[in-house]
Design a protein around this nucleic acid. Sequence first.
DNA 1: TATTGTTATACTCTATAACTATA
DNA 2: TATAGTTATAGAGTATAACAATA
Lengths: 161, 161
Amino acid sequence: MQRRRSVRSAANSKKGRRVPSAKMLALDQLDNHLGYFVRRLQIWVFQDFVDTLNPMRVRPAQYSVLLVIAANPGNSQAAIGQTLGIERARLARMLDELERRKWVARANGSDARSHSLYLTPEGEKALAKIKRLAARHEARLAAHVGVKRHAQLMALLREFG
Amino acid sequence: MQRRRSVRSAANSKKGRRVPSAKMLALDQLDNHLGYFVRRLQIWVFQDFVDTLNPMRVRPAQYSVLLVIAANPGNSQAAIGQTLGIERARLARMLDELERRKWVARANGSDARSHSLYLTPEGEKALAKIKRLAARHEARLAAHVGVKRHAQLMALLREFG
DNA sequence: TATTGTTATACTCTATAACTATA
DNA sequence: TATAGTTATAGAGTATAACAATA
């Protein structure tokens, strides 16, 4: 269900196409758009997260869902989705996958329309491993942007929202 | 080819499903991941960009390509793609679309394998309008995160990447 | 009537592979 | 043999709509 390890980490490998020393062109107005830099950083983060978490085959959105279920057991799909900004149709299919892997269980709540979400014991164990890998990713990210800049960015973005 | 104006800006409209005052759950470790905040901000930026640029039907990646072609006329697809980190297969199809709209022209370069990219006069005119809308988006973004924070984030990210 | 969750469709973006035509 | 560009396929993520069961 998941793509195999990214080739990025194996750049210039026997199979990989040689990457010529990137000719960088003028960015013009792009240099004045915060969104451009945010996007470039976000792509790096996403890629490194996927590579680092590859042993557990977990993607960023799945990780966020597992964390929020673990921290708020018994909540509905609607609550999880609203917290993380994940669309309910997408979350339903994501939970199908997490349930298939026996990490998450959908129980029946008081309101018969909704499900109460929990991690299974197996899910708790998996999440412990996942958290260790996620911490490793975060350390790489800090090294990538610079430890000081990482702290400054974190402070600015956290106080914002 | 492009989706109609997002419903987000028309939240709680007659057709839209009512959004209950979002119940926010504990984020746990997510609060220590820079990538989480970057991702949330990136989603806002992307959505606002698409909404603001909707009159010209231009998406962020298209905008970046138009800008870089305009600032570096005559370059190859490979050079544009490397500068912006856009995969060549994706760029080829994006240029098909921009050529179809008569904004971009692919000329033959010295090397018969490559194309030299230019904006057409029509493309130049369109880009002028697009730049005005993009500036409006950037002002909204600054208001959204706070003008001071916007400047701080810009400085941090620009000096980094 | 409104909400929760589900299924389905369509489009964007990313990742790959295979192909052509050149070099 | 390698490069520039194209075409094709698959998966993730997002946006919508429509539906069943329940409130």
